[in-house]
Design a protein around this nucleic acid. Sequence first.
DNA 1: AGGCGTCCAA
Length: 630
Amino acid sequence: MLRSSSSISRLPLDFLAYKYFADLNNSKLAVQQSLALIGFINPSRRLCDSLTSEFSFPYDLISSINTCFSVLACKKIHAQVIKTLNYRDGFIGDRLVSLYTKLDHLQYAQNLFDEMPDKDLVSWNSLISGFSKKGELINCLNALYRMRLEMGLGPNEVTLICILSACTDTGAFLEGVYIHGIAVKTGLINETKLVNSLINIYGKFGCLDLARLLFSTMQEPSLVSWNSIILVFVENGVSDEAVRMFNMMKRVGVNPDQATIVTLLQGCGDIGIINLAETMHGYILRAGLDENIAITTSMLSLYSKSGKLDSSKMLFEGMKDPDRIAWTAMIGGYSMHGRGKEAIKYFDLMVKRGLKPDHVTFTHLLSACSHSGLLIEGKRYFDTMSSVYGVEPKLDHYSCMVDLFGRSSCLKEAHDLIKKMPMEPNHGVWGALLNACRISNNVELGKEVAEKLFILNPYDQRNYVMLSNIYSAAGHYNDALKIKSLMKKRGVVRTVGCSFIEHRNKIHRFVVGDRSHQETHGFYLKLDELIKKIEVVGYKPMTKLVLHDVNEDVKVEMIKEHSEKLAIAFGLLVTEEGVPLVITKNLRICGDCHSMAKFVSLTEAREIIIRDVKRFHHFANGLCSCGDYW
DNA sequence: AGGCGTCCAA
């Protein structure tokens, strides 16, 4: 993998011109000609004149570099450096290397770097850092190799930190481990910041034990170390461990900061962490952090994830000066709850206030359109996002659009959009199309798409289940069975659907046909009673959804014991009249359970809120907030 | 004097 020369291609003419003129002399003309030849500048009259008058080297140059936001300005400074032929003054060469990469000009950075005399470790780090920020891992490793080969230089902790960050960004686990090895060999493993990066990367790849081990070997973990290990646990869904670390850090006298709080708030949505939100809220108030915009935004987002959209809205309205992220969070909240019209309203309002939406804002906006079936609006925003708002559509946006077309039964449009994509579609895009095939009952295309997905993500059970459902719905039970055995053969495990409901500070968990709960007898009776009652007002079991080729009575029985229904029956059994039921489902809600919840909300006069893996469903008076569109 | 770690929306 390591090669001795840079994999950045260079244009020989540019290079020669640069070298020739830079070495030749430092006359004004030579500088201009060299810069023009290598395409660094367009030597307008004004620029030429400004070269002599604008800077007096080096201190003005250094201060100008800090306020330099355009490539042209950077090139002007560079021109001045070429003219005076002094890269070391004020470390101007290193600064320029960083600057060029920040401005997305890796090639210029590399050219400049190669021309610099007297490179030291920090110069190499500047280059590696630049590559790392652009996700150029190969170039990072290449530079690491070259610095030893050409100058006998070994890395320091900064070098390794930069490379690790590139490993994390590109999903390069083995390379990360390789860097860990170098850290151990060079003795750099005692550097706190480096260990923080290692903890981070192990967490990102789900190696909780390694992350924990690294943390426990630290002599003196910093605030960031604590934040990193807490993040590892939250990201991997073990927020109770995160809470333990939080308490421990306070005990040893490390003061939590904004990052700690924001991270833990993220974990508050996890199942089983009932009191964490209250704990955090108390802490935020005591620490006087309730005005902090990042923390408020996290709270806002947490509320909408917990089904309390009104609270999100209140928090948002109380914000002094909501930024793009806060607005985006609000749009995301409306999207998740299927309130597309309001999402659009907030988007338009945000633009009116002069805030610039980014690609995340558009992801939420488009998914809001998709969740509410707003085909025309979605198309309009998608078509104008680049021209009017300057945001280029990415993979996520294409997924949303495929989803939107698919749910609106425009399978052909969905497929055509994919064919027109300027980049290679990923599993998200194909997955949306597979779901579209399910909605349109298109077995042929579904099979084709699923084959692609099986290659892209052979261990993702959702694709197998989806295809098997498509077959079953069309009555092709044999094909459905074949998919099941294929899963078995490949060792793909189907996720068991389960529903959760919170009651008296306890999480009650149900799977299909569950009889392990101590209230089993009670809520099964309740369930029978409910079914009888709703059948009178028109409920009919959707037995078509049962995938097995069994007779009708068995199908009715199978569908009746779905986890959602058990949770609803349990909830009605143990709560007071009029208390809304809040249920969480780990997969998408089943169509029959959706219908059942609608009827129950009517006959029992109860609000039922079900959060599934995709979005929220608010059932009341026999209707659902999603308008049966999900 | 220059290069570096965690965190809010997906």
